[in-house]
Computed example of a mutant assay.
Amino acid sequence: MLLADDEAMIRAGVRAIVATDPALEVVAEAADGHQAIEAAHRYRPDVALVDIRMPRLDGLAAAAEIRRTAPATAVIMLTTFGEDDYIARALSEGAAGFLLKSGDPRELLAGVHAVAAGAAYLSPRVAHRVIAHLGGGDRMARGAAARRRTDALTTRERQVLALLGAGMSNAEIAGRLHIVEGTVKAYVSAILTRLDVRNRVQAAVLAHEAGLVTDVPGL
């Protein structure tokens, strides 16, 4: 993975967390957006963990360029509670996940694994902030509207959406529901179309907003 953050202490902390997981490796680091883009092109990592705000070129612009020129690299945005105004733009730029700098280290590892496997990942606290920021107004009304949209899905589609919202990859969803991965891919494609959302992250937000994720046993 690529780690991009202008704060050396943050990079050191993330490196230490990643070092506890033998399946993960930090192959490159960057202290600004330009360095992040260069490192993504040079190392072609599966995942780039990018701070939203960095000098010279901010993380959002860097993420957009990485997604455009190195599409095999999925981008997770590192954020804080004070950066809600950046969320909508990050979603539109194709970010595959959001993690809080102050979050549980286990969430960081889970998020990187999920995104590397092709899933979207929103840590629970980030999901609440995303929903609050994008929704505005009456949260109960927003939840009701989300439920109306998801009620139009079949029972199986709602199950797939809930597991997608929980950060599971297609393979994990297939295992959970005892179906083949190709069928999950077809379900996900149909869900994105029927809900009129652009990507898995937006679908995950809707799943959280509709309360589907909290209804998944064992999560």
Rank of each mutant, 00 (worst) to 15 (best):
E209L: 10
A88I: 08
L219H: 07
A72W: 08
R149A: 12
D84C: 06
A162W: 04
R129P: 03
E157T: 09
I37G: 06
A132E: 14
G167Q: 01
R106T: 09
P71Y: 03
G103C: 08
A8M: 10
A127G: 05
G111Q: 00
T80H: 00
V180K: 15
V50L: 14
L57K: 15
D6L: 02
L49P: 02
A210Y: 06
G59N: 08
A70D: 12
A36G: 07
D21F: 04
E172D: 11
A70W: 10
H133D: 08
A204H: 07
V130S: 08
Q202N: 07
N199W: 05
R147D: 09
A210T: 13
G94P: 14
R11H: 03
E181G: 13
Q202P: 15
R194L: 06
T214C: 03
T79G: 06
A190P: 13
A62G: 09
A61R: 14
G97H: 02
D5V: 01
G59R: 08
V75M: 01
A28E: 03
A88P: 06
R42K: 13
A190D: 13
E172S: 00
V26A: 03
P217S: 10
G94D: 10
R142W: 05
L3D: 02
A190Y: 02
Y86W: 10
G182L: 14
E7F: 12
T214E: 12
A166E: 01
L206S: 10
G165L: 05
L78P: 02
V160F: 04
N170P: 15
P217H: 07
G103V: 05
I191Y: 02
E157D: 12
V197S: 03
E25W: 00
P55W: 02
F98V: 01
A39I: 07
N199F: 05
A96M: 00
T69N: 07
A186T: 15
G137C: 09
D51R: 11
D46S: 13
R11G: 04
I52G: 06
L100Q: 07
L49H: 02
A152P: 06
P105H: 00
D5Y: 01
P217N: 05
Y43D: 11
D84I: 09
T193Q: 10
E25S: 10
L108S: 00
E209P: 09
L91P: 13
L212S: 08
A63Y: 10
A62V: 12
M140G: 15
I191C: 12
L163Q: 00
I131D: 15
A174K: 07
L206I: 11
R89T: 14
D215E: 14
R42C: 14
H128E: 15
A72M: 11
R53L: 05
G94I: 03
A96L: 00
A190Q: 14
P45Y: 10
T69R: 13
R89K: 10
S169N: 06
I191M: 08
A96W: 02
E172M: 06
K185G: 15
A114C: 03
A203D: 04
A120K: 05
A74M: 04
K101W: 01
Q159A: 06
V197T: 04
L57N: 09
D196G: 11
E65Y: 12
A204K: 11
A152C: 10
D21E: 08
A162Y: 03
D6G: 00
G82C: 08
M1P: 00
V184G: 12
L3G: 04
G136L: 12
L192K: 12
A64T: 13
I17C: 00
Q159Y: 01
T183A: 13
L109G: 01
L108P: 01
H128S: 12
